[in-house]
Design a protein around this nucleic acid. Sequence first.
DNA 1: ACAAAAGTGTTACACATACACCCATGT
DNA 2: ACATGGGTGTATGTGTAACACTTTTGT
Lengths: 245, 245
Amino acid sequence: MFVVTRTKYARRVVFTSDHPILHVTVDVVVLTLRDARMCALMIRRGGPPYKGRWALPGGFVEIDEDLETAARRELAEETGVQDAEVRLEQLATYGAPARDPRHRTVSVAWLAVLPAPTDLTAGSDASHAAWKPTDQLLSRGRLAFDHRRILGDAVERVRAKLECTNLATAFLGREFTIAALREVYEVVWGQPLDAGNFHRKVTRTGGFVVSTGKRRSAGRGRPASLFTAGPEEFLNPPLTRRSLG
Amino acid sequence: MFVVTRTKYARRVVFTSDHPILHVTVDVVVLTLRDARMCALMIRRGGPPYKGRWALPGGFVEIDEDLETAARRELAEETGVQDAEVRLEQLATYGAPARDPRHRTVSVAWLAVLPAPTDLTAGSDASHAAWKPTDQLLSRGRLAFDHRRILGDAVERVRAKLECTNLATAFLGREFTIAALREVYEVVWGQPLDAGNFHRKVTRTGGFVVSTGKRRSAGRGRPASLFTAGPEEFLNPPLTRRSLG
DNA sequence: ACAAAAGTGTTACACATACACCCATGT
DNA sequence: ACATGGGTGTATGTGTAACACTTTTGT
């Protein structure tokens, strides 16, 4: 029950319905670790509204497109990451009537966690896309729309999921050392952890990490064993957030 | 950029946009305990598609309506529950292109947990609305749309939240006994718990329950103390799901 | 040899589990 | 008096927190 026409500039849709009509978008919070800081991929807006402000990558859901497919498309367009293995998790949906001044828009937010050295060359303009530290964005950043809240919810979700899943391994490459994994926890939780106890905990918790048998020297000190992420999504019991240094 | 006209039968909206256009609905999973079973409020569909099947209460989001407001409106329309105190929590958003055969519909699902004796008289027809046991619905029920999946996700969410929040108190009235609270856990988790240890755990965990000083006799046995729900949302450490009987 | 990081041992303590046992009420 | 359910005590096991200590490398 809709007609699509193509003008010189854009597709134009004339739609008839008995029901209210809203726009549906996806926004993706892409997180990674750079220089011991948690960073989010942000896009600088080139036009109104919120011109010049940082915004989450996102866009409209196509008419025959699954929500996760739309999020995956946005992720690929902005980062070049085509990997179907990337964990993409639905965060929440934001739909306050005034969140977009142009039209009523409901946005389904997604969370993606990537290993560190992702360059933004593929498909996106470096002057428009950048990795920004999440703590800066959340405290002093001037973000477009309600993206500060979405980002804040994403960071909270990641903090919570480190306790009871091995999501932390998503911040690392396929093979990693226990020390690197510990650094993820220390950065995300913002507190030092006991190296010895952490090592015991993650290696003895079945399904968390899998030993490869290989070792890697980090320049000085005893070479560390290499592990890959285990298959287990949920741990029982969870890691605790205590054990301050 | 839209025109609303009113015909004899329904509002008709003619809409013009440069972007894909989707319908947005809310569906509400309303859970309660009846006769030691977890039940969901279901609506029997009177017309196609899925005529005669059970569906979650839900409906279209109005053009100027917040998502939570829409969910709360649906809850009130179907149960008569106007209480602003009712916890309403966003579950997830479901948007597979074919989930509604009529038109592309994205549905934001919400979860509400209510005390048991809610009669459905207010505003809804008893022949169309009913409390159905969730285990039956999930195993043998023929549900409309993707509502089986939504219901399944809701039940999983509730099971998980009992471990680390005092959501269980939402199944009970303002004042309740520890035994009643324990029954909520036993029904939702489907396993018996040790009465003594449960009592100690919930009363010694700060913020979980608050003693009223009052007592209530249940006919036989020592009268139980009455408690109200504490303010705390998250517990540390969580209740464990073990302790089989 | 020394520094540095990986990994293990050890001890004290908190909490969970299992279950015995006492408490307060109705019949 | 007895049954019934509410609530506490207690022994035992298990995991955590803190930190000492050993292992394995680079310089």
